Amino acid sequence: MRVPTPNAAPSGVSLGVAAAARRLGVAPATLRTWARRYGLGPSEHESGSHRRYTPEDLARLVVMRRLTLEGVPPVTAAATALSTDPTEAAMALASSAGEGSDTDLEEPDDAVATGDVPAVVALASDLGVWSAVLPADRTPLTRRPSPAGQGALQRAVLAGDSPGAAAAVLAACSARGPLRAWEEVVQPARAALGRRWEATGPGVDSEVLLAAATLEALRALRRPPERTTAVVLLAAAEGEVDSLPLHVLAAAVAAHGVRPWVLAPGLPREAVAAAVRRTGPAAVLVHAEQPVADATAQLGPLPRLRHPVRLVLSGPGWAGAALPPARPVLQAPALPAALEVLLEATEP
């Protein structure tokens, strides 16, 4: 007969040390150390058998592991985990499925067992809490190590943790700069989410969360004092709906002391032309991810100002486009090359 200790979690799914360690992605010896040093041990036991981790125990261990991965000292992380409200701890548990290791968000791998998914939902249900993350959004992930920064971002996005995703993007931008963070961390996560969406159906909400978190992180970056009064105007080609590359490039421009102006995608060419006349920029960049069918129609309305204005075409969409011969343009398919051209245009 099972005899719960005082303040034990509600009855339901419970795990031994080995099973709990596998669930969390840590060594059994780590769990024993946490139990011995910090009091994060199993709180339920059967007569004549080993103690077992209840849903509440596991939820607090998830909090402990997440904090230690973020660099919080173990003593502080343990105190926080022990003081966590059981409901909040259950939500942390429900949002941590697949957190056992840094994983790439790739297509489902049939070789990975799926039995943990219902178990995690059951553990949360035992505490009377329903996870905000749908079980269908927990398709098993391939167990390949991901580059530094991607694992934390991907876990936060799948857990619906917008502040955590923004913090991961901000950390990557601070360490690598906006362009490298975009190419090495954010873009791979977006591509993986897109593949996952195609394979399983769910995932649109995750892409929206990632985009919002990226914008939040870019706005939070510190900008140095402006070194010039010149501005650069960044616009999307007609038909484009994704403005994130423009905001990433704008953050990189601002980091060099130049003021960027980003126009929302979908504006008529006449509205873009009016913005050019109003701001008098040193350079105008038009970004296209999708193939441009009629470059003359898109670039023709842009006005010619009295002072020299560089017209820069960025993105893969301009490849193969028939450019107007009377309009000198500079092509920079990749964002780093576009940044160099924009900075050159603002030099005194």
Score class of each variant (00 low, 15 high):
2 R>T: 12
3 V>P: 04
8 A>G: 11
8 A>S: 10
11 S>M: 13
12 G>M: 03
16 G>N: 01
17 V>P: 11
22 R>G: 03
22 R>H: 09
23 R>T: 10
28 P>R: 06
29 A>W: 00
32 R>G: 05
33 T>I: 14
34 W>H: 09
36 R>Q: 11
37 R>L: 10
37 R>H: 15
40 L>G: 09
41 G>F: 01
42 P>T: 10
49 S>H: 12
50 H>V: 00
54 T>V: 05
58 L>G: 08
59 A>W: 04
64 M>C: 07
64 M>D: 08
65 R>F: 00
68 T>F: 03
72 V>N: 00
79 A>D: 13
82 L>W: 12
100 G>K: 05
111 A>L: 14
115 G>Y: 06
117 V>C: 10
117 V>R: 15
117 V>I: 15
123 L>R: 06
126 D>M: 08
126 D>N: 13
127 L>P: 02
127 L>H: 04
134 L>D: 10
140 P>D: 04
143 R>Y: 03
144 R>S: 10
146 S>K: 02
151 G>N: 01
153 L>D: 02
159 A>C: 03
162 S>A: 15
165 A>S: 06
169 V>F: 06
169 V>A: 11
175 A>G: 05
177 G>Y: 01
192 A>R: 05
194 G>N: 05
195 R>S: 14
196 R>C: 08
197 W>V: 12
200 T>V: 13
204 V>E: 08
209 L>S: 07
215 L>H: 14
225 P>Q: 04
227 R>C: 12
229 T>Y: 13
230 A>E: 14
234 L>F: 04
236 A>F: 04
236 A>C: 09
240 E>C: 08
246 L>W: 08
251 A>R: 00
255 A>L: 05
257 G>R: 02
258 V>T: 05
258 V>K: 00
259 R>M: 03
264 A>P: 07
264 A>Q: 15
269 R>K: 13
271 A>D: 09
273 A>W: 09
274 A>I: 06
278 R>G: 01
280 G>F: 00
282 A>W: 00
284 V>A: 11
287 H>T: 04
287 H>L: 05
290 Q>R: 15
291 P>S: 02
294 D>T: 09
296 T>E: 14
297 A>N: 07
297 A>T: 06
300 G>K: 03
305 L>N: 02
309 V>E: 06
321 A>V: 10
324 P>S: 04
325 P>L: 12
330 L>E: 13
332 A>G: 08
332 A>H: 11
333 P>T: 14
334 A>D: 10
336 P>H: 03
343 L>P: 10
